[in-house]
Amino acid sequence: MGRVAFQLIFKSFIMSTLKNHVQLIGNVGQEPTITNLESGKKVARLSLATNEYYKNSEGEKIQNTEWHTIVAWGKTAEIIEKYAGKGKEIGVTGKLKSRSYEDKDGIKRYVTEVEANEILLLGTKDGNS
């Protein structure tokens, strides 16, 4: 491959890989909420816990859990509905999306969620990861 071609392909690869790219591996918190829209589209919503471990100054192992909201549409939502129940270990790739809504008191709230475009089912077949 020519130098120019390589540079251009590499640049476009890097741009598409790094631009708003999220990758998570964690456990599903609650049973995912599935919504069937009037348009026939399916939306799945779930919270995913990722765990990180570190040792503090006393040498104790500390677990740090972060919770992420995952939203998936269409086929990905169907996979979540069928296979990604509470406690399952899954991998998610997608992008960050922010939106705002008004709560019941009329206050504008901002949320950032991960919109999944691919789900990877991890852990064992019988459900325990």
Partner: peptide, 9 residues
């Protein structure tokens, strides 16, 4: 190399 370079650019 010429084919890929010229096409890419």
């Amino acid at each position: 190399w010429l084919i890929t370079d010229s096409s890419a650019f």
